[in-house]
Design a protein around this nucleic acid. Structure first.
Lengths: 224, 224
DNA sequence: ACAATGCTTCGATGAAGGACGAACTATGCG
DNA sequence: CGCATAGTTCGTCCTTCATCGAAGCATTGT
């Protein structure tokens, strides 16, 4: 009636519980098939298919067909950011729910948030990096400290080249209610954790499980 | 079914056209009465009242009763940020709409975005401040340059004291599709513009109309 | 070629919720 | 006190849309 972008259309796409569950599942960063998404959404395959075509039409998802599998993924960081923002409001506004965070203990400790690490571990990591002044923080604004380049280079992460996406971003952790590190640096650190096999992704979940040795290594590098 | 914050509940609140219009109107930053919101939403008063109580229950609005008037406003910056994020996705995803930006030409030039300035003027301002290195920008991250303190002090804006909200933030402008300046600094600049009477708020709209002299003054200070 | 798997389309059903008019409550004004 | 204005509550209508079973396509495997 008054305005350009059709915000109600987008919001109502997210506003259905089945679709919201799908999108939340896709925040794990990996693309999923229609059947998997039907499972997490708790609906039948036809119903899921209908939801998926709506989300596609709304531009929130991308589709990669591989043989008879069709992998759906989030359309991009902007969409992920929107889901994050909505999740943040929902978490802030909804302490009427009994459980204050993720039901699963493992999810509280460490989980994937689109392409970076979230949960207690991630919050502790950002805290420590800021305390050691590897990163400098003013509220939501995070930038590299003087020792950042050498610190991250030592573990094989390049922070010198300027990527198109923001290098550092604060992302409000909805279980701990404090910020963790997002952006390309956050993504690179998660890659590192998985590549070094310090932790593995829990199947069908966003949870990230550290091995005892991996936890030690992670803490040595990031919390030491 | 799987998860903590009830994101579908929040999103579905925004997902109704009438409510979306109300929230968008409240992005202007000023609280509005139920009748005014009924008007912008294009619904009858009873319908609006029903929507408003739902938004209240969802925690998206605050209410200030003054006599027989009840002023509804956005619950806070987090909610505003969420609306922004949704608007961004809707704008990015919805070029199927014929008009690429706000219908109203004045809205394209300058408008209020919750508590700061948006539109062509605002985008030009950020560009210029970055070009002059008053502000330093790496993608979404904006921080103060060396000359920022003196530059803003000269026009009566204090950037030294650290506020709780981020001082600078990039906010994607959905009409121009480039960033403008948000955060407390963005808000302070808008205050300045209004206080100096360089521009006035258009009634019942987010549009900001510069006077000829005000435009000159603004351009001298921020685009000069 | 035939079966099996993965997914989509079709059609019918049912429930949720948005719409408004009328009646009710509350505040302000003369 | 009585009238006007602002807003909410109630009851009812009606549209929208999520849901599922069954059937239809498409791709892979034997």
């Amino acid at each position: 009636m008054r305005e350009g972008p059709d915000i109600a259309r987008i919001a109502s796409l997210v506003g259905d519980p089945a679709r919201a569950n799908m999108l939340t599942a896709l925040m794990g960063g990996t693309a999923l098939t229609a059947s998997e998404l039907a499972l997490v959404a708790g609906v039948s395959l036809p119903t899921a298919s209908s939801h998926l075509s709506k989300l596609m039409e709304g531009g929130l998802l991308t589709l990669a067909s591989q043989g008879r599998h069709r992998y759906y993924g989030l359309a991009g960081p902007q969409v992920a950011g929107m889901i994050e923002a909505i999740t943040g409001v929902a978490a802030a506004v909804g302490p009427q729910r009994v459980r204050p965070g993720p039901r699963d203990a493992a999810m509280r400790v460490a989980r994937v948030c689109y392409d970076h690490l979230a949960g207690e571990q991630a919050v502790a990591m950002l805290d420590r990096l800021v305390a050691r002044q590897v990163l400098l923080r003013h509220d939501k604004e995070i930038r590299l400290g003087p020792s950042a380049a050498s610190h991250f280079a030592a573990i094989g992460i390049d922070v010198e080249s300027k990527p198109r996406r923001p290098l550092c971003r604060a992302c409000l952790d909805w279980s701990v209610r404090r910020s963790h590190l997002a952006g390309t640096l956050g993504a690179a650190i998660l890659d590192k954790i998985i590549a070094e096999k310090w932790a593995r992704r829990e199947k069908d979940s966003r949870a990230v499980i550290f091995s005892p040795m991996g936890k030690q290594a992670f803490e040595k590098v990031f919390l030491g």
